[in-house]
Design a protein around this nucleic acid. Structure first.
Lengths: 154, 154
DNA sequence: TACTGATAGTCAGCATACTGAGCAATATCG
DNA sequence: CGATATTGCTCAGTATGCTGACTATCAGTA
């Protein structure tokens, strides 16, 4: 009988569980109300102004049906805007608002602090090695999820 | 501007996403319909017959409000039973059914295959090292989530 | 024993994540 | 050009995961 601790799937779930809890705690301590998913989406919109939802989903490996609700909440909080695209009437162009930019700026220290706290049990070299191994395993498994990472086109 | 790939939180989410997809694919290929969460709960019930829901949740680090629904679905599929405890009328004792045992037995190869596939991008030594580092980081962060791992009592 | 606090479980509500279906618009190709 | 395929997005439904509140019960203590 294999122990849970020998199952990478179980360890993945536990580490992700802790990562989300740490992120939310740090962000709340800084006075904001933003989930890890919302943060990643907002930061990606900022770096790629005017991108459409499918591209955004690809850049952060979200499912296209998930991104709809995430953007809904960013828009509802006044951090992002969704407008019809002129080039393609099916698509929506996403923009970050000034309020969104301000939020991103002010929240960054909390986000970075959260990333540190997640790795508190490891020394610097181990933290780097963990990230390297995760990146490698993820790269090999990218196409196995419904929402693989996709580089920006053009 | 930090890249997503330098954020352990983002990598955690991606690895977990792939792990779940791989698990579901392998289990479905074997002809079963069981989620990673349901599998872990069922296996733990089998190893600890008669345990109550809070103990089960602690052993696999689930939230106590999450475990309710998971057990509902195991019961509904005929894989587990929930009975009132005689010692404590608040508690429910959990048992695996014969059908549940049969399912666990038949599903094991698929589960093990899934664990292998998740690490396909790594060689054996790297896979071991990834698990070691995850275990270490998780141990340090255990108390930071609402659903920390708890050893069985007595 | 009566009061107080803790514990087991559930429920409502919200936020990911996914499957599968559907609509509207665009692209492609005979 | 017109039929067909593809694409961008949304929606309904299901399954985690969590917060916070609530009931029932148990445990410890004044």
């Amino acid at each position: 009988m294999k122990d849970n601790n020998d199952m990478p799937g179980h360890l993945a779930r536990r580490f992700q569980q802790i990562a989300v809890a740490v992120f939310l705690a740090e962000v709340e301590k800084a006075g904001f109300d933003l989930t890890p998913v919302q943060y990643a989406a907002l930061a990606t919109i900022k770096s790629n102004p005017g991108l459409d939802q499918v591209t955004l989903a690809g850049l952060i490996a979200y499912d296209r049906t998930t991104i709809t609700g995430v953007i809904d909440r960013l828009v509802q909080k006044g951090l992002a805007e969704r407008r019809a695209s002129s080039r393609d009437r099916r698509a929506r162009e996403l923009e970050i608002t000034d309020e969104g930019k301000r939020t991103l700026r002010k929240i960054t220290p909390a986000v970075e602090s959260a990333q540190r706290i997640m790795l508190l049990g490891l020394n610097a070299k181990e933290g780097e090695e963990l990230m390297r191994l995760l990146r490698k395993a993820i790269a090999a498994g990218n196409e196995r999820s419904r929402a693989p990472l996709r580089e920006a086109q053009e």
